[in-house]
Design a protein around this nucleic acid. Structure first.
Lengths: 106, 106
DNA sequence: ATTATATATTCCTTGACAAGCATATTCGCC
DNA sequence: GGCGAATATGCTTGTCAAGGAATATATAAT
């Protein structure tokens, strides 16, 4: 997992943008209006989301219609899902860990 | 999705801690040593991971053995997975969006 | 009790980042 | 070509978070 994607999503207003775009694509002004942001901040947040591949834009006239990109979400889902294996592999693993390190100090 | 979890994971060293703990639980000093961190920063990062529920500790003597907690990863996975529905629902949705807003200005 | 070990907390400094505001850029339209 | 609408960028400022070093707390051992 890369921290860039996580950092992009970790900012509250950006996360709100993502949740908004889940409905369907929106222009910058619409996003700004709906979320109560000023246009420049909306653009800046979209820039960051765009840089991390979470979002992309289609230009129509002088408007830019932003939409979500599947890949980052798939990667995030895969990564989070990969931890399922951890819980399975570790039933009473703490005990074995304690056992192992009780004598040896490696 | 809450930004606290995302922010906790967005920090590089904390993400490294998470990846390390995937193998099995570790004490603070072990984490610090393996990742080349100083003990205080390790403790601080673990505090933040702990506050967001990503990690928890079992006290054994004066050691604290940290391990991953399933819930945040499950939530993250569910959230990321919930976007699958978006791609399905939106085949050529951009077109319909353009169509809709071509005349109406709401 | 004293000392040693493991971990947590505090204070300080510094760097990153978001908001606010002004301005630049891009493109359609007349 | 100039004008207006939509979007992007630059600059400044305030805030917050991370690293460093010292220190506090807890627990064990002697």
């Amino acid at each position: 997992m890369d921290t860039q994607t996580l950092a992009a999503l970790a900012e509250p207003n950006r996360l709100r943008i993502v949740e908004l775009l889940r409905a369907h694509p929106y222009t910058v002004n619409e996003i700004a209006a709906r979320l109560g942001l000023r246009q420049p901040q909306a653009s800046k947040h979209l820039r960051i989301l765009s840089d991390s591949g979470i979002v992309d834009a289609v230009a129509v006239a002088q408007q830019r219609i932003y939409h979500l990109e599947p890949k980052p979400f798939a990667e995030l889902g895969d990564w989070a899902g990969s931890f399922e294996a951890v819980w399975n592999a570790r039933l009473g693993n703490l005990d074995s860990y304690l056992q192992t390190n009780k004598t040896s100090k490696e």
